[in-house]
């Protein structure tokens, strides 16, 4: 097991290295004005040249890459030029990620808490009113563009329950709407997958045998079906959780949450290359960690997966 995890980690570090190198190289192809920010108009060409040299941008590209990795290992992602001048990128991201993390985890927690049991109950009572209601909800969330129901929430729900619309860190009541808005879609997808995998398992032969040997329907559901249905879930859960953490651009701008969602778009528009680099690093790391965790989770629950010499082959 440890050997397997070690191997997967090593592979991931390599993947990460390739991604970052590609992004780094692509950004060097962008116009250099980005590094000058708002000050560009006030500088003479000679001053610009001196500034760019001081940033190390006149070094050969391989030297630049080397320096970048050297700094990266020391936890230094460079400084923002346009966004908040001379503030380390690490600090900027750290400030923003706290909000996205809180909302993301909150929303994931909420949707797991509601979505998974909902899916289980839908499978258990397949074809009854709860199943139909749940299916209706899932179809609604999938079919209607998110922007529409977010707007409905903003227009009517705020009034109906007298909830404040904009986010204010110090008023807990303002957390409610963003959290529920964010949880709507993942709740539906967790419920949908859970129900689907449960129904899949229920149609298998071993369930027939278990019934024939006299296992109660309820015991059957929770002791046999649930765990088996959870295997495919286990693989994707960590990744979906981590992606929620990276923040929703739309929700964050809707409720004016100072999270990470809008940062990448902002940074690209302002051509703030150091922030873009930093964010790509964070996003891709999260994605890769999600995949590793998924694989590990699956290996933990499924005895059929043999780890070690043969690799992770089923």
């Amino acid at each position: 097991m440890l050997q397997y995890i070690g191997k997967r980690l090593l592979q991931s570090v390599l993947t990460l290295f390739i991604i970052i190198t590609i992004v780094f190289s692509l950004l060097r192809l962008m116009p250099e004005e980005g590094y000058l920010g708002a000050a560009a108009d006030k500088m003479s060409p000679a001053q610009q040249e001196i500034y760019l040299t001081s940033l190390g941008l006149r070094d050969p590209i391989l030297v630049q890459l080397g320096n970048f990795y050297k700094n990266l290992l020391q936890g230094d992602l460079g400084k923002s030029v346009t966004y908040r001048t001379d503030v380390p990128v690490v600090t900027i991201i750290a400030d923003k990620i706290t909000y996205s993390l809180l909302f993301g985890l909150g929303a994931v927690g909420l949707s797991l808490l509601i979505g998974v049991p909902l899916g289980i109950m839908m499978a258990y009572r397949k074809g009854r009113w709860l199943d139909r209601l749940g299916t209706g909800y899932i179809v609604f969330v999938v079919a209607v563009p998110a922007a529409v129901y977010y707007l409905v929430i903003q227009m009517y729900i705020t009034e109906l329950f007298q909830l404040p619309m904009l986010f204010d860190e110090y008023r807990p009541i303002t957390w409610i709407l963003p959290l529920t808005s964010m949880a709507l879609a993942p709740t539906a997808s967790y419920a949908m997958w859970m129900r689907r995998y449960m129904v899949d398992e229920l149609n298998k032969d071993y369930i027939k045998l278990a019934r024939a040997k006299g296992v109660k329907e309820r015991t059957l559901m929770f002791k046999h079906v649930l765990r088996n249905a959870f295997i495919p879930m286990a693989q994707y859960l960590p990744a979906t959780i981590l992606f929620t953490i990276t923040g929703s651009i739309y929700i964050e701008s809707l409720y004016s949450i100072p999270g990470m969602g809008g940062l990448l778009v902002d940074a690209i528009q302002r051509q703030d290359n150091t922030i873009v680099q930093g964010l790509v690093l964070v996003f891709s790391s999260l994605g890769i960690i999600g995949l590793i965790l998924g694989d590990i989770a699956m290996a933990l629950v499924d005895p059929r997966i043999k780890l070690g010499k043969g690799g992770g082959v089923r």
Partner: peptide, 23 residues
């Protein structure tokens, strides 16, 4: 439940799929 298994038990057709793979 008083009958199934206790009084009348069954051997199913396909042993490859009749057992719970995770237990």
């Amino acid at each position: 439940l008083g009958i199934r298994g206790k009084e009348i038990a069954m051997v199913t057709q396909d042993p490859m799929t009749s057992l719970n793979p995770l237990k």
